[in-house]
Simulated assay, not measured.
Amino acid sequence: MTGKDVPGLLEAQSSIPQGTRINVTFLGNEDLEMRVAAAKAVKEAGFVPVPHVSARRIASAARLEEFLAALRDVGATDHVFAVGGDPETPEGPYASSLDLIRSGLLPEYGVKEVSIAGYPEGHPDIADDVLWEHLEAKATALRDQGLDAVILTQFGFDTEPVASWIREVRARGIDAPIRIGTPGPAGIKRLLGFARRFGIGANAMIVKKYGFSLTNLMGTAGPDRFINDLGALVAADGAAGDIGIHLYTFGGLSATAEWARKFQAAA
């Protein structure tokens, strides 16, 4: 959710199991007060807030400490997501989430677990070898600080690249839980728009596996087939470890929560 989604959170509250982790984004057009208020609302609604900390949007160490202190004051620093962020030029001293983690400030403000990004289908602006180097370095830096790690991935439509990437993560000795980014139910055009924006493959074969057709873009699509197929691949891999999903609510919190409730009930 974003800082503006508190009304949507309250609307969806009864459909979301208590204790669910809900990420709160760090958008450039929202301020500290909005982000903290959203994290507080998540906490008060009985869920676990996971506020994003966008490295390249933080102007100084003092601003980072101000944000972490404000989150701590509302009980929202146990879990955070350290992410690089969009600006091409960093606004302050943190050029990457690795720089943010290496600052050593997170545990000083009560952080116990840090989510870090994974890219099963790569990143449009970052070479694969750099992505792997940073993932390994972040996992090491968190372990050295006594912090738990969770790898939260960008979303995708195809299961084979995801399964292959999971095997590579484990082969590199990284045993952190992995949460595979999965688009919740949303309009097909909207899903494809997000895919193009983030450089995710969306060719005819992939979208067919996800369960919709490029020739009919007027409807909506859900992740049922993707999750079932990925579950089968993970179950067949005895070394996959702790694997789950993270739902991106492109179609809204209520629609995603209701889909998840029905999917679980039918399982």
Rank of each mutant, 00 (worst) to 15 (best):
I243A: 07
A12V: 09
A255Q: 08
A232N: 03
G251Y: 06
Y119E: 03
G118S: 03
A204N: 05
L10W: 10
A257P: 14
L142C: 05
E30V: 15
A186K: 00
A266N: 13
F157Q: 02
T77W: 12
L253V: 15
R143S: 15
L106A: 01
V24D: 04
I116T: 01
T182E: 04
A240V: 00
L192N: 04
G85K: 13
V234D: 06
G3I: 02
S54E: 05
A39H: 08
T159L: 01
A95V: 09
A202V: 04
R197G: 03
A260V: 14
I101H: 05
S164R: 12
F250D: 01
L217H: 08
V169H: 11
G173M: 00
E121Y: 07
V53A: 04
I180K: 02
Q264W: 13
G211M: 02
R143P: 07
E168Q: 10
D128K: 06
L68F: 05
L152F: 11
P17D: 01
S213T: 05
G211K: 00
D242T: 11
A76I: 03
I206M: 13
I16N: 01
L247F: 15
S60Y: 08
R143Y: 08
D175H: 12
E160Q: 14
A204D: 11
S115L: 10
F263L: 05
F26I: 07
E30L: 15
V207G: 05
F250P: 00
I16L: 00
L32C: 07
G211R: 01
A137M: 07
S60W: 12
G122Q: 04
T20S: 14
V207N: 03
V207M: 07
T153F: 09
D129K: 10
A76M: 02
A260P: 08
K262C: 01
R35H: 14
L142F: 05
D73E: 13
P93M: 06
S15P: 06
V6W: 13
A139N: 13
P183V: 10
R102V: 11
H52D: 06
I227E: 01
D237F: 00
A127F: 05
R197T: 14
Y94N: 04
D224H: 02
E108H: 13
T256W: 10
T159R: 02
P107C: 09
V42I: 15
V234N: 09
R63F: 10
G122F: 08
G252Y: 14
A117K: 10
A235P: 00
I174F: 07
G187F: 03
A76L: 02
G187E: 07
Y210F: 10
A55I: 13
A171W: 02
D73Q: 09
S164K: 12
A163N: 02
F81C: 11
G184R: 10
S254K: 14
T89Y: 08
A117Y: 10
E133W: 05
T153L: 06
G199V: 13
I166W: 08
A95R: 14
E11R: 06
D229Q: 10
V162K: 01
P177V: 03
A265H: 09
